[in-house]
Amino acid sequence: MIKRVFALALIVVVAFFVFPLFAGIGERTDLGPVATAYLEEGARALGAANLVTAVVVTYRGLDTLGEVTVLFAASAGVALVFGTLARRSQVERRRRPPSELLETGASLLLPIIATFGVFVFVHGHLTPGGGFQGGVVVASGVLLSFLGGTLTHTPHRLLGALETVAGAGYVAIGLLGIWLAAGFLDPRFLPSGEIGSLFSGGAIPLIYVLVGVKVGAELSGVIDAMRHRSDVS
């Protein structure tokens, strides 16, 4: 009881100190100089219709590389946490087979989910979406195929290879930007094309496809680690 009162008091104190910071924020009509510059020149300079993507992949591209690294570290952490546990042979025997409904539904939905995931990361520079979202959609398809029994054993080597190639390709494209264009992760070494068409934005779609493949492979690895080794034995 005393603990709860203390927690409540702490929340009130934090609210008291944070409130003045945001009390003055009303409706804004104009943006800051950085945002205005991005909005005015971003689309034309890079050829990307989706400006959020332009910021994520190009202007703040280094942050995105760091983000991919954090995601890798987290998935490696999950694999490490579950890595020392019982082998899969004991676990596999106790697993209940999927029901008819789940099995049929999974095999019906799987191609649609995979296509949608690929669509989301290929069109990242045109529509809301991108590499991370598309990768997560693809990984959800992998989860469904595990549940539905479509995929019985994990292609570890394929996942590892995809992850390595995508990560190295991302850095390589960044380095190509130094060599052929203005700096690290500058996508303008490829023709920027017409705004709104699929082949536009220079190397942005290429980077987002690599990010999508990497995120999809990494999250599939996380799902696999949790599936095989998290049964309480």
Binding site: L31, Y38, L51, V55, D63, A74, G77, V78, V222
Partner: peptide
């Protein structure tokens, strides 16, 4: 403003990764 949107895009993914790690620690 595209910058906060891009930040949130990043933060969602990091949040997902951190949550997955926390859940595996919990298990």
């Amino acid at each position: 403003d595209p910058v906060p949107s891009a930040l949130v895009l990043t933060a969602i993914v990091i949040g997902l990764a951190v949550t997955a790690l926390m859940l595996s620690f919990a298990v």
